[in-house]
């Protein structure tokens, strides 16, 4: 499916693109946009609705935990944020690989579009976790394996955002950020297995392939907020991709007009 994609970047450092090629280059982003435009509200609105339903249910309709008490409700925000922080970087890594191997012009745009919402959810995960830790564990922060590796993920996002926005100035075929995106993915299994491999203050995995160790009466709003935040995340990524494609289009057009 990538054979038809042009191997040239959207913007080149070599100067203005000739019109014929410009038309060719935007042929496939145009196909992407014809799907992305109607899809954005269809992801965003159900996402917001699910988040609102899940968070309100988690505040008022579920029982407290036998040990943690009411503070267990922070889970409904914390767990989706952790999932999206990690899924976001996985997305950056996959998109970066596609960019490096197939020179897919949209892959670099997708990777850059994921970075900011990914960093946001990594930050939300760290902050809500810190707030959750104080009443339960008795500490805002401890340098255990899980907390430290999640903080590393947040710093990786910040570094990626800096690197890729500098790379975008040079042209969209920015290999340095792509390689950084792939290498940084090594942290994702470390975060996941940190609670199993190392003794940590953070508890083990509650929800796995084998099922959940959370009682159904407490668990049920969690899939709502997780799905809701995931849909909203996808909508944000599409919005940012649309913005970047439109900005690139304007810039190419202005360059061409200047050269004519």
């Amino acid at each position: 499916m990538f054979r038809g994609w042009p191997s040239r970047p959207l913007r080149t450092a070599r100067g203005p693109l000739i019109p014929r090629r410009a038309v060719h280059i935007f042929a496939n982003p145009a196909r992407f946009l014809s799907i992305a435009r109607p899809l954005t509200p269809w992801l965003g609105w159900p996402g917001l609705l699910l988040i609102a339903t899940g968070l309100v249910s988690g505040l008022f309709l579920t029982p407290p935990d036998y040990l943690q008490g009411e503070s267990v409700r922070i889970m409904y925000a914390h767990v989706p944020a952790a999932w999206l922080g990690m899924a976001g970087w996985s997305g950056i890594a996959v998109a970066s690989l596609m960019q490096l191997i197939w020179r897919h012009p949209l892959a670099a745009v997708a990777a850059r579009a994921i970075a900011v919402p990914g960093a946001l959810f990594a930050a939300i995960c760290l902050l809500t976790g810190s707030i959750w830790g104080r009443p339960t564990w008795g500490t805002w922060w401890e340098w255990d394996g899980r907390l430290t590796s999640m903080l590393v993920l947040f710093f990786l996002y910040i570094a990626y955002i800096a690197l890729s926005s500098a790379g975008a100035e040079r042209g969209s075929n920015d290999r340095v950020s792509a390689i950084f995106g792939v290498v940084g993915a090594a942290n994702i299994p470390i975060i996941h297995y940190s609670v199993e491999w190392w003794r940590t203050l953070h508890q083990g995995q509650s929800i796995g392939l084998a099922g959940s160790k959370i009682d159904g009466s407490i668990l049920w709003p969690l899939p709502l907020t997780t799905l809701g935040f995931t849909l909203l995340f996808a909508a944000i990524v599409l919005m940012r991709m649309r913005a970047m494609l439109a900005e690139a289009k304007v810039e190419a057009r202005l360059k061409r007009m200047a050269s004519e």
Binding site: Y66, L67, Q68, E142, S206, K213, I214
Partner: peptide, 18 residues
């Protein structure tokens, strides 16, 4: 000099725990 609580990954309402 300091005590931290470590809970496990099982969450349940008090009735179930009892």
């Amino acid at each position: 000099t300091n005590i931290l609580a470590k809970h496990d990954e099982r969450y349940m309402p008090p009735q179930v725990a009892g």
